[in-house]
Design a protein around this nucleic acid. Structure first.
Length: 596
RNA sequence: GGGGGCGUGGUGAAGCCUGGAGUUCACGCCGGCCUGUCAAGCCGGAGAUCGCGGGUUCAAAUCCCGUCGUCCCCGCCA
């Protein structure tokens, strides 16, 4: 018996030129419009949809099948493509000039009534959507996001391949090297009491590939970090991971910019200007109050410390006496009521400021503000001048420890200025990060992994709080898309850096000894980067969170409403791994089982 | 770990502040009518333990406490 194709044409591709073709379509019933005599169906497949007409003179069998059709039945339709009668074309539909006159309709698979409608008009509770993700994926929004993600990854692969990169897979069961994020652990059956970790990134393996002579590596790598969720964070996520030998950051940027450009072109039809602008970390902090500035708009932070050096205004004088600073932003026309300003002040306090000074420039150039009476005429004029403010502008000023001033103004700047529904893409590199972040009590925590090259090892040892590293981030519209660095390729330097970071010889040996040994065999200077693909696609698709571009994401508590994971496992499964649960954990599980 | 929002027929919302009969709107579902619609239309119908538990009250969707789920923010994310 000859194989009969289930489908000879795709619904969304039929055009006027196909008129007269006998086609067999297969897909889902998107809508059903029953006019008593004539029945219209919109038949949807992955390519789009086309109108199917079941004429009133259909034979009884076809009429009976047609009568039974409901939303999302999976059906096949055999019939003739024909031009629609005059005046009934639908200009909103790519296939709107034609319809398919059904001669034969078959139900391939019926559908239960739906838990929610398959369209983009209704907002459905997200856990409901995740519980029925397979239906959610039929909605235009999700279907488009899957296509976009695939296009993005394809653009990455082809651009990387064109540049001579080798795609290499690294293991996903690796040795746990807990540092920074929490590891996901996987117990070993063959070596009970031992554990694999899921990789937080392919970092050390890609460096080994450099030792191995690969020179240009990339991978679309799944990574795992057992930390709390955010709208832009899942515990498993996907990165474009790259590394190159005989590279500095210039080569990294040159390799990645065409990749980002190709992705932006594929998803948005926009090709960002190359090279991307660069900002040093210090500049970014001073001008935007953040290490991931959104440079689609101005409203930059203006330092006012000089202006207020001798001020009588106690709030400012106090901050300056404590070696802090005074700075502000010109938020433009805000037209806030008194309670609106109060809310801003409250917001600033919530962000960590002791207060917030707001001033509105009056038509005559004077300042309206609750604290205007404490500021000298020179100070008031100086303020207007420093911002280049014009009447109607709202000035917001914070005085505090410099770090606080920057972060508070940076957040207020975003609150008040961040563009919505904006098409621009602002990509930039932030370079020259500090080696350490200085905590509120002066404690130092490394900003990057310990394989990041500092500019100067001696500097790092002698002035750790100000030393800079050869690390850099990529930022898109105010979101961190990824980070990278020039790596340490010399084992002695690596050892020194471990030492400065407070990792003892013994600890370094037990955790990274295998890696340190590799560095001793002619390791080329190398550098690399990792781009967060989920975030990139989410931003380009204008999605508010990365779950919208992940086919099967987890909720904020790490569960999957579809499969019910994570779930308990049978006792013998644990026994095989040499694992037992703590008594209190067992009790809690039993109680839960009883209430279910 | 901390703070906040939300939870009402299958879906989305209103009702809650200021307690008084499960009330309303839109979509969907079921049935009927309808030969050109395309988010079809018109008519009729079914469908709810107001997340769960406790408390206050003559009376709770509404107020209070707890709990679960979910989302957002801070911490965390080398």
């Amino acid at each position: 018996m000859a194989d009969q194709p289930l489908r000879t044409a795709r619904a969304g591709e039929l055009r006027a030129g196909d008129s007269g073709r006998e086609v067999r379509l297969a897909g889902w019933v998107a809508t059903r419009r029953d006019h008593g005599g004539v029945l219209f169906l919109d038949l949807r497949d992955a390519s789009g949809l086309v109108q199917v007409v079941i004429d009133p003179d259909a034979d009884d069998a076809t009429a009976a099948v047609a009568d039974s059709l409901r939303a999302e039945y999976c059906i096949s339709v055999t019939g003739l493509v024909r031009a629609r009668p005059d005046g009934t074309a639908n200009p909103d539909l790519p296939t709107g000039d034609v319809e398919v006159a059904a001669a034969l309709v078959e139900v391939l698979s019926p559908s239960d009534p739906l838990p929610f409608q398959i369209d983009d008009r209704s907002e459905v509770d997200e856990s409901r959507r995740l519980e029925f993700r397979y239906l959610d994926l039929r909605r235009p929004r999700m279907a488009a996001n899957l296509v976009a993600r695939s296009k993005a990854i394809h653009a990455m692969r082809s651009t990387m391949a064109a540049q001579g990169f080798l795609e290499v897979e690294t293991p996903t069961l690796v040795k746990s090297t807990p540092e920074g994020a929490r590891d996901f652990l996987v117990p070993s059956r063959l070596r009970q009491g031992s554990f694999y970790a899921l990789p937080q990134s392919p970092q050390l393996f890609k460096q080994l590939l450099m030792v191995g002579g690969v020179e240009r590596y990339y991978q679309i790598a799944r990574c795992y970090r057992d930390e709390d969720f955010r709208s832009d964070r899942q515990v498993e996520f996907t990165q474009l991971d790259i590394e190159g030998s005989f590279w500095g950051r210039g080569e990294v940027f040159a390799a990645l910019e065409p990749v980002l450009a190709a992705v932006a072109l594929a998803l948005r039809g926009i090709e960002p200007t190359q090279p991307f602008p660069r900002l040093t970390w210090h500049e970014a902090m001073a001008r935007y109050g953040t290490d991931k500035p959104d440079i689609r708009f101005g409203m930059e932070i203006v330092d006012l410390t000089e202006l207020f050096v001798g001020t009588e205004f106690k709030a400012f004088a106090g901050a300056l006496a404590a070696e802090g600073s005074v700075a502000g932003i010109d938020a433009g026309k805000q037209d806030l009521s008194r309670s609106g300003f109060d809310a801003l002040v409250e917001r600033a306090v919530a962000l960590g400021a002791k207060g917030l000074v707001w001033l509105v420039v009056e038509p005559d150039g004077t300042l309206r503000s609750p604290v205007a009476k404490f500021l000298s005429a020179a100070e008031q004029e100086g303020l207007v001048g420093a911002f280049g403010a014009v009447p109607g502008d709202t000035l917001l000023v914070v005085a505090d420890e410099t770090k606080v001033v920057q972060s508070v103004l940076g957040s207020l700047r975003l609150d008040l200025g961040k563009p919505r529904g904006h098409d621009d893409l602002a990509l930039l590199w932030v370079v020259d990060f500090p080696v350490f972040a200085v905590g509120p009590n002066g404690e130092l925590t490394p900003e990057h992994h310990p394989f990041t090259a500092p500019y100067d090892v001696a500097e790092m040892r002698d002035h750790p709080e100000t030393a800079l590293s050869r690390a850099y981030d990529l930022v898109l519209n105010g979101s961190e898309l990824g980070s990278g660095s020039e790596r340490i390729h010399d084992p002695r330097t690596q050892k020194t850096v471990f030492d400065i970071l407070g990792i003892s010889d013994q600890e370094a040996e037990s955790r990274f000894g295998w890696f340190m040994r590799a560095l001793r065999y002619g390791t080329p200077p190398h550098a690399g980067f990792a781009v967060g693909i989920d975030r990139l696609v989410a931003i380009l698709q204008n999605e508010p969170n990365i779950r919208e571009v992940i086919p099967f994401p987890k909720t904020q508590t790490g569960t999957d409403p579809l499969t019910g994971s994570p779930g308990p496992v049978a006792g013998d499964q644990l026994a095989e791994l040499g694992i037992d649960l703590l008594p209190e954990v067992k009790r809690a599980l039993e109680e839960e089982a009883e209430t279910d």
